[in-house]
Design a protein around this nucleic acid. Structure first.
Length: 453
RNA sequence: GGCAUCGUGGCGGAAUGGUUACGCAGAGGAUUGCAAAUCCUUCUAUCCCAGUUCGAUUCUGGGCGAUGCCUCCA
């Protein structure tokens, strides 16, 4: 499609036309997980949002012209803490969480990024960047720590709309005697004996939080690239500090050109937080709900807006997909999605607008030709929906159910007999029995079908 | 306190300087032994007050209200 892509750039907070540095080599870096605990539904949102942005970019520029880099942070204070709490080694913890994370990505039908670099595999580059920053006088060493001196970077606060005076006045920044100024942040710090550590010019230690993204984005996308994404909460301090480090280390006027941030998920209108005890892990849904349902729910509001997670949302999405699968057909050839239908996705990734268009395509497909059904299915596939066959979709819940198919079919047979004898009391009784066991009966075209409620 | 975001029908949720999506729920109908599912039809909305304008829900200012960030939480 010739249409331009528009994105809301957090840097300046305006919707802007997306112009890549090089159309044949579009780069997107998204902050992936810190692997200290299994991913929750809040982590799922950026996974799905940026997966769709990835798809839109590939649609516009071609599959081979887009690089999607999503890191895994596997060294961090939270990991150390979590490994102590869980009483397992750091290696075991990060390995386990990473496996679960990948399984969640599959479950949510996300395309694989081009590269998924790990922080621990790039420590030497982080040391190098810290050295560069010291050499260039943007950073200083004190008692085996390396700090970035925020004052030296004149554009600090541009992304998050903050100025230094306010930050200091707020005085909520960690105060440390080692720092020259309270706003300075750590590039390298010493490790205690039982903590992970690497050799460095400043003694054994480990990197500060932000350094891995600066280093890995540089390695895989270069010193300037197109899109940097993540959750809203990362704007400050994480992304602000990334910009400071990277631009100073690389002597550039820009780091990423477009900053894209997704909004937060609330759980039944409450903030999702450990203290609320309402953190929903992605893994907990796998038994009962198809990943496509979560995916649809996650894009049911615009990515910038908050999204409330509740039972009605899940039920609605489940119903919509049940309905949509009625019109699902196998598509083996290339089918074009009408430009009018696709265009909301180009307008700042307006997924609700696109979903509305899919509803319209469904209406057309329902009484339409095979071609209409193919267009409808293709439009769903584009955002990772209806990607399974109809059978697989229908069998998902049957497989997860604890009532056997044999038992159900026996009951249905029994009920059919009763219906033929016009013994509706008995037939309704059997139906109620099955409903109580979670099995829904439907008499359709003279045949009785069933599904798990 | 500072910086942002938001306020659309019963609910969720887009868009828009003029005729306002889409989904759920509701109503009526088709279908059904009755249901369910599905199909067809259909009712309902732009927080308040000024201003700009031929015309504002959309732009500007003010008010009220909600939320987020400023705490290594996506």
């Amino acid at each position: 499609m010739n249409k331009d892509i528009f994105l809301t750039n957090s840097l300046g907070n305006k919707k802007e036309k997306f112009i890549p540095i090089d159309e044949n080599n579009v780069g997107m870096y998204v902050c992936g997980p810190t692997v200290y605990d299994d991913p929750h539904i809040g982590n799922a949102r950026p996974l799905v949002v940026f997966d769709i942005l990835f798809k839109v970019l590939k649609c516009k520029y071609g599959n081979k012209s887009v690089s999607y880099i999503r890191n895994i942070t596997d060294v961090d204070d939270k990991i150390i803490q979590s490994s102590n709490e869980k009483k397992i080694s750091i290696e075991e913890l990060t390995k386990k969480v990473t496996i679960n994370y990948h399984s969640d990505c599959d479950y949510l039908k996300c395309d694989k990024p081009n590269k998924e670099p790990k922080a621990t595999e790039h420590i030497s580059l982080m040391v190098k960047m810290a050295e560069d920053l010291i050499k260039k006088k943007y950073a200083y060493v004190n008692k085996n720590h390396v700090y970035f001196e925020v004052k030296k970077f004149k554009d600090y606060g541009k992304l998050s709309n903050k100025n230094l005076e306010e930050l200091i006045a707020g005085s909520r920044v960690e105060i440390s005697e080692n720092k020259k100024n309270p706003e300075d942040f750590v590039l390298w710090k010493p490790s205690k004996n039982n903590e992970p550590s690497w050799e460095s010019p400043w003694g054994k230690g480990r990197p500060g939080w932000h350094l891995e993204c600066s280093v890995m984005s540089k390695k895989y996308l270069g010193i300037k690239f197109d899109i940097h994404g993540g959750g809203r909460d990362l704007i400050f301090p994480h992304h602000e500090n990334e910009i400071a480090q990277s631009r100073c280390a690389n002597d550039t006027d820009k780091f990423a050109n477009y900053w894209v941030h997704n909004g937060f998920i609330t759980i039944s209108n409450e903030k999702m937080a450990k203290s609320q005890g309402n953190i929903l892990k992605i893994n907990d849904f796998k038994k009962k709900i198809n990943g496509q349902v979560l995916r649809l729910a996650l894009i049911s509001s615009h990515y910038k807006q908050p999204l409330d997670w509740n039972d009605k949302l899940i039920n609605d999405c489940q119903k919509i997909l049940n309905k949509w699968y009625e019109c699902h057909v196998e598509v083996n050839k290339k089918v074009l999605i009408p430009e009018d239908s696709l265009s909301p996705l180009y307008e700042d990734l307006n997924t609700p607008g696109y979903i509305a268009n899919i509803h319209k395509l469904y209406d057309k497909a329902y009484n339409g030709s095979v071609k209409d059904k193919q267009i409808f299915t293709t439009a769903c596939n584009f955002i990772g929906l209806l990607t399974d066959s109809k059978d697989k979709w229908l069998n998902f819940k049957k497989e997860k159910s604890n009532i056997s198919e044999k038992e159900i079919l026996l009951k249905i047979e029994e009920r059919d007999k009763a219906r033929k004898n016009k013994d509706y009391k008995l037939s309704d009784k059997i139906r109620d029995e099955l409903i109580n066991k979670g099995v829904l009966i439907e008499d359709k075209d003279g045949k009785t079908t069933w599904k798990i409620k």
